[in-house]
């Protein structure tokens, strides 16, 4: 999981618009939800913009990563 956990979300929606790759959406409860984790670029903008610091992020990617050499 790139974005590991969202807890303490107040539903302001800042992370939704802040995410450059549109990973987060508000669910039917009006809470931020990691909807497209495979598109997360692990840039932490959502975490830094969150007014309640609700987002925890880990450095792992959900899908295998293609690099130039390995």
């Amino acid at each position: 999981m790139p974005i590991n956990n969202i807890s303490g979300c107040i539903g302001c929606g800042t992370c939704v618009s802040t995410c450059p790759t549109d990973v987060i959406r508000l669910n039917k409860d009006g809470k931020a939800e990691i909807k497209y984790p495979e598109d997360c670029q692990i840039c932490h903008l959502c975490r830094m913009y969150c007014p309640t610091d609700a987002i925890t992020i880990t450095p792992e990617k959900t899908i295998p990563v293609i690099v130039s050499w390995g």
């Binding site: 790139p2 670029q41 692990i42 840039c43 932490h44 903008l45 830094m48 992020i57 450095p59 792992e60 990617k61 990563v65 690099v67 130039s68 390995g70």
Partner: peptide, 20 residues
């Protein structure tokens, strides 16, 4: 630009504290 072999997709971690 190269990345890191450990968690290569983690931009934030790869750039140290620069994003902050």
């Amino acid at each position: 630009h190269p990345g890191r072999s450990i968690n290569p997709a983690a931009c934030y971690d790869g750039w140290g504290d620069m994003f902050e």
